[in-house]
Design a protein around this nucleic acid. Sequence first.
DNA 1: TCAAAAATCTAGTAAAACTATAGGGTTATG
DNA 2: CATAACCCTATAGTTTTACTAGATTTTTGA
Lengths: 153, 153
Amino acid sequence: MKLSTKGRYGLRAMVDIAQQQDAGPVAIHTIAQRQSLSSRYLEQLLIPLKQAGLVKSLRGAQGGYVLGRSAVKITVGDIIRVLEGPIAPVDCVNEINPDECMRAEHCVTRKVWTRLRDTMNEVLDSYTLEDLAQESMPLAGSAVIDYDLDNKC
Amino acid sequence: MKLSTKGRYGLRAMVDIAQQQDAGPVAIHTIAQRQSLSSRYLEQLLIPLKQAGLVKSLRGAQGGYVLGRSAVKITVGDIIRVLEGPIAPVDCVNEINPDECMRAEHCVTRKVWTRLRDTMNEVLDSYTLEDLAQESMPLAGSAVIDYDLDNKC
DNA sequence: TCAAAAATCTAGTAAAACTATAGGGTTATG
DNA sequence: CATAACCCTATAGTTTTACTAGATTTTTGA
């Protein structure tokens, strides 16, 4: 029941873009540096985010990424669903592409998974990018953090 | 954000034991047959469940497994935590063995993961084995289900 | 007593998923 | 026209998953 690096890094990248885009498009390598991520890996995460309309890209020098729509209209759930696929503890209760199971009708555990799925989606959709971007605004202006960064979150 | 077969099969096995234990200890191969699982695999899932006290075993002929305590005192969360490890979307918000992250104090995403972790645990702990065992009692008495079983849940 | 039923212990392993890395493009700017 | 930036595809190393297998121990009941 863990998120992969896709969801974790992707969300951090989106928050970064939300916080910095007032100064113009944000380049991949800028995000990567600030978040201490591999820029080649981050590049791959931005492709599906772009396809989903959560970011827009501007090519060429001075290019980079901006949000596809207002930060108040992008939820954490929106981002995670793009990067990790449908949020569901088991495939058989996944709305998009339900991996149907013959036992579904008599399945005792199914209602637990359905309830868990709904709750997870509700929680993740209750946070917008705006919420998170505001959260660390004060820090963003202060000194660069100089401790060793690891990437558990 | 998916459960593995350990959690899914393990929960089904526990429900099976809860439903059938009035007739005495339930053997692994009986559970495996009824749930169409590999008995050698199921065997491995029962070891940690036993260590956690969720089941007790009786060796020798006529042996098998019984619940370690009343079905009303075993939650789905208890079972999943034993088989899948701590329920948390990222390791850094896992209470048992937090995989600490240097950025934790300034981490914007952390509160989302903490909230999600708590909600997931609440949902899973809101269902007891008794709840699930009762659910399908009527079916247990009827004919054996003869369709191809797959194991998505 | 002994055969069979059942759990237990210890390894091994093929396939999939994860986490990147790498190379070679295309587009836009100044 | 050099450079900065995004775009696309492939591939490699590692870890996890989901089993399979062999050998052993314990208990029952005939």
